[in-house]
């Protein structure tokens, strides 16, 4: 056995060492470098803010900062849920399905222009419950039918999106409940309520990850499922709970999105999936699981939103904003991944 691993090592090094790689490892070696890598996303965020401010001082005006906070609210809430799934080494593609179902339930139960329901804040609870159920469904399909989460949640995405389009009859329904609309319109200490709700969701996610057994079990599963099982972690229960928790966060995001938009329609969730995954990954959480967390994701969401805001301020053509964002993802991930630990990159 030992002979095998001895003979394999030189081959690996020979194959893997390119000039660029060597440069990388020179920069990122030892304990200090390890800490540097952990903080790479934060450094990227700060440098980004400084550069944009230098180019256009309007960036740090309170009005603009509030705008950034406001447009981070929904992505932050979504990415909180997504972080737990990615920490487990799974993926949840049903984000858009869950979000649109929550928005649909909210709009159809609160006062609206399509029917006579007026359940007010009960509609918010129902919306979040519906989305949590969808998360639960993901978890049960994945663990009981034993399907990779990629495919299980892909199917649930279509089911969720289809259900909401069917219930809305393919049209847009307006949300007319003023107290729910005030989530987006009313302000507290200068920030819209939606921002405070997103921050509360963030706080909840921090508590779940760092102060509950569920959070530690999720990390354990992501770090190595077989080891976690041998240590007595109930894999099925943790997985199902994690997907339900993710659904819960997607539900909150759905309520916020519907309140911000003032309606629910077939495209309310468009593009949210890739935005959420991008934020999580840019923040430094590894897709292989077991590394990173919700604090990383907060930074990731801010990087993505600040970048988008900055490109508008700098007058960059909207057409190439996606290109810049793509390059940004590559740079952020290439800088923050710990390649010494990830022997095989898939």
């Amino acid at each position: 056995m030992s002979i095998n691993s001895e003979t394999m090592k030189p081959v690996t090094n020979l194959e893997r060492t390119s000039a660029m790689h060597a440069a990388f490892s020179r920069f990122f070696q030892g304990e200090g470098a390890r800490r540097l890598r952990t903080f790479a996303p934060l450094i990227v965020l700060i440098v980004l803010c400084i550069l944009i401010t230098l180019a256009n001082p309007n960036f740090i005006e309170p009005r603009n900062l509030i705008r950034i906070a406001n447009s981070s609210a929904v992505p932050l809430t979504l990415a909180m849920g997504m972080t737990f799934i990615i920490l487990m080494g799974s993926i949840d593609l049903s984000v858009e399905g869950a979000l649109s179902v929550a928005a649909m339930v909210l709009v159809l139960l609160a006062s609206n222009d399509a029917n006579t329901n007026e359940y007010g804040w009960l509609a918010v609870i129902a919306a979040i419950a519906a989305s949590t159920l969808i998360g639960l469904m993901n978890g049960i399909i994945q663990t009981v039918l034993r399907i990779p989460s990629f495919m299980a949640t892909l199917g649930v995405w279509f089911i969720g999106l289809g259900t909401s389009v069917y219930m809305l009859g393919g049209s847009a329904v307006r949300l007319m409940d003023n107290s729910i609309r005030s989530l987006a319109l009313e302000r507290f200490l200068g920030f819209p309520f939606a921002v405070w709700v997103a921050l509360a969701a963030f706080g909840l996610a921090v508590i779940i990850q760092y102060h509950t057994r569920l959070g530690r079990h999720i990390l354990a599963i992501g770090g190595g499922e077989d080891v976690a099982e041998l240590s007595g972690v109930n894999l099925k229960r943790v997985r199902i709970t994690a997907f339900a928790v993710a659904g819960f966060f997607f539900g909150i995001a759905g309520v916020l999105a519907a309140a911000q938009l003032g309606q629910s329609n077939a495209v309310i969730a468009d593009g949210r999936l890739f935005a959420a995954v991008t934020a999580v990954v840019v923040g430094g959480t590894a897709l292989t699981g077991g590394e990173g967390g919700v604090l990383n994701t907060l930074v990731g969401v801010l990087i993505v939103t600040v970048l988008a805001n900055g490109m508008v301020l700098l007058g960059i053509s909207p057409y190439i904003q996606q290109t810049v964002q793509g390059l940004m993802i590559i740079a952020a991930v290439a800088l923050s991944l710990d390649r010494l630990r990830l022997k095989i990159v898939k």
């Binding site: 996606q322 810049v324 793509g326 590559i330 290439a334 898939k346």
Partner: peptide, 18 residues
């Protein structure tokens, strides 16, 4: 760059779409 293919192609997809 040793970026996982999921992220790498998500990013190049963004570049190409732009």
């Amino acid at each position: 760059l040793r970026v996982p293919s999921f992220v790498a192609t998500l990013a190049t997809g963004g570049v190409v779409a732009g």
